[in-house]
Amino acid sequence: MKSMATYILKRIVLMLCVCFIIMTICFVMIRMLPDQLPRGSGDYAAAVLAMRKAWGYDEPILTQYIIFLKKVFTEWDWGVCTKVGTYLTPVTSHIAQKLPATIAVNAWSMVVSIPLGLLFGIYAALKKNKWQDHVISVVIMLFISVPAYIYAFVVQYFLGFKLGWFPIVVASGTNYFSPEMLKSMVLPVMSMSFGTIASLMRAVRAELTETLTSDYMLLARTKGLTRRQATLRHALRNSMVPIMPMIISQFVMVLSGSLIIEKIFGIPGIGSTYVSSILERDYSLFLAVSMFYTVISLAATLVIDLSYGLVDPRIRIGGGKNNE
């Protein structure tokens, strides 16, 4: 257990180092960009100049970075919005304000896609090489290859526009459990889920078919277990070893919004904020959201690695050459 703790600590320290390097690269590159603040004429230009001075844009980049780091670590001050959202709102509160919409859509998509993915994957594995399996394989191929925004167009056009069953864009407001909101989230949740369902299905199918043909399954059947018992108690549990980390990482990824789906359905989430910060050149916001995404993707990797050990005690986390 002690090695586990040191391993986690080591990984977290490593992660922070990587974060720091990426932040440095981002900061330097961003500060080297022209037009940090909007330009104008007359009094406005003077005001901008004063603002540049006050915010330390005239210092050398390294000094700017030290100032920035000091602010981040002492006051958790990542700067203010200049173009996106309300002028001079702290970036952190702007992000916090955008997160709920993203989380709502992603959480629903997770709730829908994990059970469906598992179910269909198991079904395909049990019906290996029968027509049901072939149908599922074709569906997997389609949904994995075709980009998510294509389904988004398809569902938006047919279900949203032609049949008029669901609203085309997500309802406004912050009441994420109101019936209108739930109804309007059906299409984005659908288009987000297809890909997740398909990749989950593929993984489950591949793993389960392998475990179903392994020797211990033969042993289990020889002992007198029914096919159902053997599948549920032995094959399924063993095949979950690589699947569980996939599912667990989904929980972390709930925070990161899909850039494209949020744009198509007008979800006021973190993904669309990111895109608009790039398009409108809101550099502080861009840096903060970039770091947000970086931390999340690093955290997801970490969680995946750790969860292998939790799911399967045979795998020793951080074990050396001899797996001690």
Partner: peptide, 11 residues
């Protein structure tokens, strides 16, 4: 590898 691709491309 850890730099998210959006960050890389937009930068």
């Amino acid at each position: 590898y850890s730099i998210p691709y959006m960050v890389m491309f937009s930068l």
